[in-house]
Write a protein that binds this DNA or RNA. Structure first.
Length: 365
DNA sequence: AATTCGGGGAG
DNA sequence: CTCCCAGAATT
């Protein structure tokens, strides 16, 4: 009786017929383009990345354009994509490639993984996709496929589980068609071996899949332990001058929204006192907007926006590199935190959400 | 080993 | 609402 074809053979044959072959970053083996796509795709779905990728490549077509750009403009093109350290590291790495590799990407796993923002899996993916070498990947898709196929128990966030999955990935990755195999495994996880209701009937490696034999593919990989997410509170002071511009501050590099521009966050500070402090003038009016919730992966942030009308422009106080008056009509090339984008849009269109309680005896202008 | 980094797609 | 996405860096 005929032996069952090797794992990678079945995966590759399936890929040739059913894999994804038309994603934007598959049109070229240019290491720069491969690299940008890999970074954007970290913890981010393909559908979300595509428009960002197109705009980014149009503005930064090669590694020199990126290395020489203003960080604000890089973050501008990352606004809304999240995990902004990726963008900061991306530009740092571009500068390393420019300065230490003469503008040519290194073709070794060690050198790639030495660049900021490139870890073990991303380095393996670039090695295969851009250089045709045997690079091994272990992303969310591959983890799911392998955990099911070998019935690896436990949450991959645990080191032992993670290491076991890497071991299997190493073992199964073939010595041929490296780029296609990696793409095939990701396609398998993204289109067939999905988190819920996997289509085992169409899977090329279902015959020896242990989870399927057990009848419980949904049990793999193990789920992350639940934790109740903490709720933090903050207020955004939206100071608007007579020209209609909004006061923004650049956030420090480590921390949430690092490098992005945001409304000043105020704890318990009194808005009128803050205004006097920063602008040397009492606000003409203070208007509290309704509180809304912005949720991160590890906590909720309840934000109370407070609109202050600053009567006179105060020129002398501004530190140009970390404070600015934002003109909505000019669309400055800077990175903005997602809730700030929403609030600026509301301020521009005048569609302020049913203004809440007035916190000042003075009426809205 | 555990935390910290976003925002949204899809159920 | 929940779960998690082509993970890496930091503590």
């Amino acid at each position: 009786m005929p032996r069952r074809p090797a794992f990678h053979r079945r995966v590759l044959d399936w890929f040739d017929v059913h894999g994804r072959h038309d994603l934007p970053w598959q049109a070229s083996r240019d290491p720069y383009r491969v690299w940008v796509s890999e970074i954007m795709l970290q913890q981010t779905q393909v559908k979300t990345v595509i428009p960002y990728y197109q705009r980014f490549l149009q503005r930064f077509p090669d590694v020199h354009a990126l290395a020489n750009a203003e960080q604000d403009e890089v973050l501008h093109h990352w606004t809304g994509l999240g995990y902004y350290a990726r963008a900061r590291n991306l530009q740092k790495a571009a500068q390393v490639v420019r300065d230490e590799y003469a503008g040519e990407f290194p073709a070794s796993l060690e050198d790639l993984a030495g660049l900021p923002g490139i870890g073990r899996s991303t380095a393996g993916s670039i090695l295969a996709a851009a250089f045709g070498q045997r690079g091994i990947i272990l992303d969310g898709n591959v983890k799911r496929v392998l955990a099911r196929h070998r019935a690896v128990e436990g949450w991959p966030g645990k080191t032992a589980v993670h290491d076991a999955l890497w071991e299997i990935a190493e073992e199964l990755t073939p010595r041929e068609r490296h780029a296609d195999y990696n793409q095939a495994m990701m396609d398998l996880g993204a289109t067939l071996c999905t988190r819920s209701s996997p289509r085992c009937g169409d899977c090329p490696v279902a015959a020896d899949c242990v989870a399927r034999e057990q009848g419980n593919p949904g049990a793999y990989p193990g789920k992350k332990p639940r934790k109740t997410m903490p709720v933090r509170n903050t207020r955004f002071f939206m100071a608007r001058n007579p020209a209609g511009e909004l006061w923004l501050e650049k956030r420090p590099a480590p921390g949430i929204w690092g490098g992005l521009w945001c409304f000043p966050e105020a704890g318990e500070r009194d808005p009128a006192a803050w205004c006097l402090d920063v602008f040397g003038a009492e606000p003409g009016s203070i208007e509290a907007w309704h509180e809304f919730r912005h949720t991160f992966s590890h906590y909720h942030l309840d934000i109370q926006p407070v609109l202050l009308h600053v009567p006179a422009p105060a020129a002398a106080v501004m530190e140009a590199d970390r404070q600015l008056w934002y003109n909505v009509r000019e669309n400055p090339r800077i990175g903005l935190a997602a809730p700030v984008v929403d609030l600026l849009r509301q301020l521009a269109t005048g569609s302020s959400p049913a203004a809440g309680t007035r916190k000042s005896p003075k009426a809205k202008e």
